[in-house]
Design a protein around this nucleic acid. Structure first.
Lengths: 342, 342
DNA sequence: CTGAAAGCGCTTACAG
DNA sequence: CTGAAAGCGCTTACAG
């Protein structure tokens, strides 16, 4: 954008570049779009002209004709306020932004906290203002994924969208295997009464991590015991309550696998209040490796979710879908991070 | 977006609406843009036609002609990784998104972590792809505000941009008065050896909160003593180190005003390790009222920054600037939140 | 390989 | 108050 003689913004257009380079506007456009069917001489002339004039393509004009917006939405559906305060979310949003930026694709941030906002955002997306959607739903049963898919909008979800008919592409950490790793580790370090605090049963993490816990107990020859299982809602307070419940029902536990670091913080609080030492009396294992994990005392042994990679793969998959590829599910391995709590 | 007979996306255009309503495209456009100079009858006909056809305006076509993009950037310049993990940032980003969404203005999230990204984002913005910028810089001395301003792009910053020639609009909490409130409160509750952990001297919070501390000490007739002042970088670890330093230099302190909740967490850690009881031996006051404030033990007495209102006002001010209004500085009052640490 | 031309969907003076 | 027309800046067949 420059200033014209009238003082108003006047951008240099493809026309100016064409004149400067001594070619037609069509040729400039061809150079801009990959340089196919353009002679080396014309290439050079145009590129020089672009440099000299400081030309930048007008995306609106381009989008008007191509029908693509060359932008992508990051849609956060958030029945629970809490979700936004989840440090994991930060990492995700940031990595997605950067992965997209490296391809010069802007990210539109959309938050659907209320039904009203959900509808507004849906309308916006369906109007074709973005080429695709990175979907982050805290809970499943969220119809938005299906609605977008039905509208023909490419979608990639973070985590497996539960209860969806449509085959939606998604990227997720291997929740089940992560849980298994942690429980195996607790068992290997000599624990025999291993309890768990699971997440909500309508979330993939709630389901899969619990399943991993159960399977590993069985593999280790430890008896299944429902008294050892408490359920939280991923909040710190719910972790606290779950631990109290566990302590009442099974005072002899010597380990707890907690399905999120935030809940593990609550567990640590409850344990401290009950006078149990961690890890001496009771080992505590978390899940996520969120920033919370290093701020607890003792620091949390946990399972790392590869957020950075998840984001990159989500972006890659979405771009592929926009390019016409079919949906896929990508499961990424987790990693056990040993610190002090187990 | 509908599907045309060829299976390709085909949107209903202003043309379809015009035909359906029995008016010209110009009239439809006038209805769309406020309904001036349109007869009530035409109004109704067009509105009905819009409803029937499911018409949604093509923003690219509109932008091409108006020269506006009807979108706004949220630019985060982030020399320090840490900043993104600041819970305050979440609240800010979220409120801005929602304030904008209520006016149907999408927010483009841009992160400038490296010099390279800074340049890329600057170029994008200068190309006129957004109408204005909400600027969130963790540190001052950041040239980006001036550069944007110079390019004629409306900018509103979060917090006072230090060391800027240009008169840039900004919204900020009243750092100085907030600090004064806290120190007055500590003094009123009987403390007489009040130390402080200040923020970096190149941030407005670092400067202003320290100034407020100093002023209030003087007002209360307490002697100025540089041994009572330690400086951190807003990180938890720096709070810990600062507290250790303070304890060494002035073991008789009975209160600490800490310029951020995150640093206050570190102070609490150090105090606990030193065997000092909070608040019995030493009262601790924070700043921010971030989520961290309720998760500490004891819970933090602190100064609330009105993030929600800051965001709303930033959006309002940016929209006003885009509309041609001159820059302004808006200072919002803070609030003392009493909990257990002081 | 290249130019002339049509056209994307809208807004906005310009007449009436 | 309303319609016909020009034009925003670009891409893309279409001829050559």
């Amino acid at each position: 954008m420059n200033r014209g003689p009238d003082g108003k913004r006047r951008s240099v257009t493809i026309h100016d570049v064409a004149r400067e380079a001594g070619v037609s506007r069509g040729t400039v456009s061809r150079v801009l779009n990959g340089g196919h069917y353009v002679s080396p001489a014309a290439q050079t002339a145009v590129n020089n002209a672009i440099r000299r004039t400081g030309y930048v393509v007008n995306r609106h004009a381009r989008s008007l004709i191509t029908g693509r917006s060359d932008s992508v939405a990051f849609l956060l559906t958030e029945p629970q306020e809490r979700f936004f305060e989840d440090p994991n979310f930060n990492v995700l949003l940031r990595s997605c932004t950067q992965a997209l930026a490296s391809q010069d694709i802007p990210l539109l941030l959309m938050i659907a906290g209320s039904e009203d906002e959900r509808r507004r955002n849906l309308r916006y997306i369906q109007a074709g203002h973005v080429d695709g959607v990175l979907l982050v739903s805290s809970h499943s049963g969220d119809p938005v994924a299906g609605e977008l898919q039905a509208a023909g909008v490419p979608v990639v979800a973070c985590g497996k969208p539960l209860g969806q008919q449509a085959r939606i592409g998604y990227v997720a950490a291997d929740d089940r295997e992560g849980a298994r790793d942690m429980v195996r580790y607790l068992h290997a370090s000599g624990r025999r009464r291993i309890a768990t605090v699971s997440g909500p049963p309508d979330t993939p993490g709630g389901v899969e991590r619990l399943a991993g816990y159960r399977e590993t107990l069985a593999e280790c020859g430890l008896p299944a015991d429902d008294l050892l299982i408490a359920t939280g809602d991923y909040s710190r307070a719910s972790g606290e309550q779950a631990a109290e419940l566990l302590l009442r029902r099974a005072p002899d536990i010597d380990a707890v696998f907690v399905a999120s670091d935030l809940m593990a913080q609550g567990v640590l609080d409850a344990l401290a209040r009950a006078g149990r030492r961690v890890p001496e009396d009771i080992a505590v294992g978390g899940f996520d490796d969120s920033p919370a994990a290093v701020s607890t005392r003792p620091a949390l042994t946990t399972i790392r979710q590869p957020w950075d990679r998840i984001s990159k793969e989500m972006v890659r998959m979405l771009l592929a879908r926009i390019g016409g590829e079919e949906p896929a599910a990508l499961i990424l391995p987790t990693e056990l991070v040993r610190r002090d709590s187990a």
